[in-house]
Design a protein around this nucleic acid. Structure first.
Lengths: 201, 201
DNA sequence: CCGGCCATGTAACAGGTTACATGATTGT
DNA sequence: ACAATCATGTAACCTGTTACATGGCCGG
């Protein structure tokens, strides 16, 4: 359960409300761990019950009262352990790979269409990530979040480089399909123009 | 919802029972779309209700009866559309990146420890994937699944190459941290030996 | 006047995980 | 004797998504 630890991680930099946390999430880890405010609020409640954080109400006039959460020593301990612990390598579900897997019953032209569309998406993603670098490299408004800047940059860099890798891999695959040469062991998967029900069943 | 389409995709190669499907999943897409048998059975029931598949009971003696599911024309249509459609680029949640993000409050040595552990995991993953290539390249037992071999290989190749990319990226990061030179914009995140609560709050 | 910001939640739902449950046959 | 294979499911649970709900203040 990573949401719990992400929240604890942010609270290590200073007390925050659920609302603050939502903004912090959106500014930093949303790319690989998005969180709805509804989920943040309910997780905070559970963290308080479990003694990882404490809450104090700060009354306001005109606006709803703020519920400010502060991480406890127990919370810091939990977070420290989690940080050091090796995380079981879980392979995230990938719709892209499922689509790739079932591309076989398409004609060569159809398959190329899908792959090229995908390539454009990856391209756009790279551009979007790169556009976020300047903003990420500089300190954000709340001064207590400033140490986050480097890590936002770090994960952004990872995302960009990985997307670039995906791009070359896709370009490579497209070239192979275009040549009608899907490398080793291919049972002529991209050969036939259209599936013939009588042969596949 | 990709499970639905993965099931339809497999049924395009021929009628199958839920049990067969579970095995097919484990042999092919489990790396990026695992499925429990409980989930497969309930999804099949819904697919039948929606008219994407039909079911007929094949009685057996000594064993439980088989419920054999066959894809309908409607099901093929749905699958064909899904295959052609561009899938919204969803960034899967990544615990690894969350851990990376919150590495900052560790000492340099601790951080290096975590990164090196991670590197070993990636290393092992590569070895495991590569070990699966020969098995994937050859036809599987059920003859109607033979066309799956190439696509199993394709997605396996993607997984391997991506893991190799991750390996290089990690090695690079480790080197940077060792040099104490975390590149551009780093606010000395790996500098301090241990967090000092009074300075972070 | 309207939309957005502040700030909190609740509730229904969808998807996925884990455990429980049955029971004969076949192989070691 | 014991475990695995065949073959089906149910039920509780956890995580995450979407929509509903409130209400004052501020800027254009």
């Amino acid at each position: 359960m990573s949401l719990k630890h992400a929240i604890l991680g942010f609270l290590e930099f200073g007390p925050k409300t659920g609302y603050d946390l939502k903004k912090t999430f959106d500014r930093s880890v949303a790319g690989f761990w998005p969180a709805q405010h509804s989920q943040i609020y309910s997780t905070l409640a559970r963290l308080e019950q479990d003694g990882f954080v404490t809450m104090r109400v700060v009354p306001q006039t005109g606006k709803p009262d703020r519920k400010v959460y502060t991480i406890t020593e127990k919370g810091r301990g939990e977070m420290h352990e989690w940080r050091l612990g090796s995380i079981p390598t879980v392979y995230p579900r990938s719709t892209f790979q499922v689509q790739l897997f079932f591309l076989g019953l398409l004609s060569k032209e159809e398959a190329l269409g899908v792959l090229r569309t995908r390539l454009r998406c990856v391209h756009e993603a790279i551009a979007e990530f790169e556009g976020r670098i300047p903003e990420a490299a500089h300190a954000d408004d709340p001064p207590e979040d400033r140490p986050l800047a480097f890590h936002t940059y770090l994960t952004l860099d990872f995302a960009i480089e990985r997307a670039k890798f995906t791009r070359v891999w896709l370009i490579d695959l497209i070239a192979k399909v275009e040549r009608g040469d899907p490398a080793r062991g291919a049972p002529a998967a991209f050969e036939h123009e259209h599936r013939d029900p009588s042969t596949t069943e």
